[in-house]
Design a protein around this nucleic acid. Structure first.
Length: 369
DNA sequence: CGCATTTGACCATC
DNA sequence: GATGGTCAAATGCG
């Protein structure tokens, strides 16, 4: 935590540099013979880059915990005990308010999970963490109630990660999962090797229950398999969105527009939407994939036939600005998960486009081949 | 018996 | 006041 400052400045710096580079590119593309699409995209990218840089400045300026970008609403909640009726009136109230306050500043992103009908799974799948349901609520205008989950290890390890699961109105097989906060817990538990795990799920075992059957040594390895387990059973469409102010939301939408069309060239799986081949542009292709290690991309196809059910992911990323503090570790987690399991049929890893260009994806350490 | 889920009530925010 | 998010007692399950 002491190095937060340094850690934050680097991405900030990178954002600025990136912005500059983008301006240069844009400059080159000002020639009317170039596609307008590309120019627009560059403009948006530049804007987002600077937005992120700005928000990072704010973020760095404010001390402490994982604060997403320029969190506009950090209403300092004042002491006025609303719940004086029961229990301990003193610290508990402020604790609760603290929780609310914290929650507001927690990073948030969402992804859509499609549960294949063939799997017999009724609900949204586990995502590599164990969750405990703590509430359900009918949501206005939504057919299905929203489920609220928090990390099972919340009490033990103080992990504040939560998620909300909302079944899609139009397509009940799609679940909109909104995550909040990062897991600070050590996932002491993870799912069993591929085949067995899906069977277990069908039998109604919760992931957590499954997890408890594992020995600690196994558990870390299980993470990768856990993730792949989900990949095998669901289609995820991740739209990473950052929780922050409304401005950010708009920016987010822009970014999603821009990035949702992205798909890795190697994504051979049929159901991936490739609405838009913006990235066929050599320039942009270079721009984006330049940050991607080929070995990052290639595994996707080689083992895709391993998937028992239609499984694919459409990645679309919003700007990852706020996530910078955590995304790297998250990232590393995903990457290591993807790479550590040799039989891991990871389809497309979803990770923010806005990663640190200096992040050593090209390093052999990251992609032992 | 211990744990997870359900569900109504409470609280914060808009 | 309406709505969404959380709490916690009650209930269910292995």
């Amino acid at each position: 935590m002491e190095n937060v400052g340094n850690c934050e400045q680097k991405p900030l710096f990178n954002e600025l540099i990136q912005g500059k580079e983008l301006v240069k590119q844009l400059q080159m593309h000002l020639d009317p013979s170039y596609s307008e699409e590309i120019r627009n995209m560059l403009v948006e990218k530049i804007l987002s880059s600077f937005d992120k840089a700005l928000s990072m400045v704010k973020w760095v300026g404010s001390e402490g915990e994982a604060r997403p970008t320029g969190a506009t609403t950090t209403t300092p909640v004042m002491s006025d005990s609303p719940r004086s009726d029961s229990g301990s009136p003193h610290s508990e109230d402020s604790d609760r308010r603290d929780i609310y306050k914290k929650r507001k500043t927690l990073p948030r992103w969402s992804e859509q999970v499609r549960v294949s009908s063939g799997t017999g799974l009724d609900g949204p799948l586990d995502d590599g963490h164990s969750w405990r349901k703590y509430g359900q609520k009918d949501i206005l205008g939504a057919k299905y109630p929203r489920g609220y989950y928090r990390c099972t290890h919340r009490n033990v390890q103080g992990c504040l990660a939560t998620k909300q699961v909302q079944r899609s109105d139009e397509d009940p097989s799609i679940f909109d999962v909104t995550y909040r906060g990062r897991h600070t817990c050590i996932q002491a538990s993870h799912v069993i090797p591929a085949m067995g795990s899906s069977e277990s799920s069908k039998q109604g075992l919760t992931q957590d229950q499954i997890h408890h059957h594992l020995l600690p040594q196994q558990q870390q390895q299980q993470e990768a398999q856990d993730i792949s387990f989900n990949f095998r059973t669901s289609l995820k469409v991740r739209t990473k969105e950052l929780d922050t102010g409304e401005e950010e939301e708009q920016q987010q939408q822009q970014l999603q527009l821009m990035t949702s069309s992205f798909s890795f060239p190697s994504t051979s799986i049929g159901c991936v939407k490739t609405e838009n081949q913006i990235f066929s542009s050599p320039t942009l292709d270079h721009y984006f994939t330049g940050n991607l290690s080929p070995s990052f991309i290639s595994p996707t196809t080689s083992e895709s036939n391993y998937l028992p059910v239609s499984t694919c992911r459409v990645n679309s990323f919003g700007g990852g600005g706020q996530n910078l503090q955590t995304s790297e570790s998250d990232f590393a987690e995903i990457i290591s998960a993807a790479t550590s399991g040799t039989n891991s049929p990871i389809v497309d890893l979803d990770f923010p486009m806005e990663f640190d260009p200096n992040f050593p994806f090209n390093s052999p350490d990251f992609f032992p081949s």
